[in-house]
Design a protein around this nucleic acid. Structure first.
Lengths: 210, 210
DNA sequence: AGTTTTTTGTTATTTTTTTCACAATAAAAT
DNA sequence: ATTTTATTGTGAAAAAAATAACAAAAAACT
């Protein structure tokens, strides 16, 4: 098996579960505890760990602190990552106001928007004109960006970001973005996820009777 | 092959791509146009369609209007679905302000929050006390809900929603929710997605040299 | 010290998902 | 009207992912 995206997402989930277990006072954990917390099978947990050389003690389980540290290293939590946001609309604003990123070593450093009306210091974080993006990103060597603009603008914004040196994108626009081979793009599409929930609720209602 | 979640997500993407193609003036479409728009292989598109009995003309491709209609029926776009939001924080507010749901037959009808300070008519949509959720949902037979509360509160909120008759959840809390077998839960975790982007950007930098 | 029990780490198996390949067929061209 | 060409629809093959199975090892117990 090769390392795939789902596997990395599971690592993040394990890490979150470990935080909670640690807060509850636990010191060690077994693969089936983690499996239960994350909703997979114990063998999946061990498989994932073995892929990354994460190891515990036979019969003794895993040490939570060590695991958290190792997972942190794998997931790049050893250093702080600067991230920019493009689009100061509903989503962009919500992201800027969100307080949970810091704890994970994610630092939203600036927001950019094409609309002058939104270029204010909205609740702490500066919102700059889009034209300033390129210089800002180059100067600070920012690698990661969030696209929270309407779909029509998304590709254009991406092109600017790429030219500035951005290598990874979290995209909220409901459109497939095109970029070079080595560009990393994850998509979040709330509408689509809702639609999906609706589909399966209806599908279940049909199969299991009303 | 059995119908799985990814397949349904692809159907939604096809539908979105079809809207765009239609707006561009196209009348018919081939599997490789859709494949390109969505980022899959043409054979995947045809396979997905064949699963749902969606059919085109050999050599003639697919009629866009018909496809949109059929996909709409499959995805439950024939009727309007009422959805409630719990949690009037950053995400909840962003969702309430978002204008795109209506077009997809998704109607956010109310928001609930435990915090009295948030129980105002924030920008149009009413925010009710959490205690009123159950009656509201029962009375209007709402089936779908969005959880946008902190992780510690999420399971508790879910339990209330379930007791009120909610059957499908879009969950923004970074925690695994527990519910009955037939409860549909989709999770959106922005932090985790960002972490994922960061991981792969770093991974690529390592393998391809700086 | 030896035995039992529990849990890991890893290989093998199964299942799922994707991709390929190509006959069937409809449109276009001759 | 016949031939050519392009594209679907689907069954077969390949690839990927998840699950099971179990030997190895560490802890607990006797």
């Amino acid at each position: 098996m090769t390392i795939n995206k789902n596997c990395i997402i599971r690592l993040s989930r394990y890490k979150n579960a470990l935080y909670r277990l640690k807060n509850l006072g636990f010191v060690k954990v077994f693969s089936d505890n983690l499996a239960d917390a994350v909703g997979v099978l114990p063998s999946q947990v061990r498989k994932d760990f073995s892929l990354f050389g994460l190891t515990g003690n036979r019969r003794g389980g895993y040490n939570i602190d060590e695991l958290i540290e190792s997972l942190g290293n794998i997931l790049g939590k050893d250093k702080v990552h600067e991230v920019i946001v493009v689009g100061a609309g509903n989503i962009g604003t919500a992201l800027m106001n969100y307080k949970g990123f810091e704890q994970e070593g994610i630092n939203l450093v600036a927001c950019f928007d094409i609309d002058p009306a939104k270029q204010k210091k909205a609740s702490g974080m500066p919102v700059f004109p889009l034209e300033e993006l390129k210089d800002f990103v180059k100067q600070r060597s920012v690698r990661i960006g969030i696209i929270a603009v309407p779909d029509i603008a998304a590709q254009q914004v991406l092109d600017i970001m790429i030219s500035a040196g951005i290598k990874g994108i979290l995209n909220f626009a409901p459109i497939r973005l095109r970029g070079p081979e080595d560009l990393v793009v994850n998509n979040i599409n709330v509408e689509l996820e809702l639609e999906n929930v609706i589909y399966f609720v209806n599908a279940l209602r049909k199969t299991r009777g009303k």
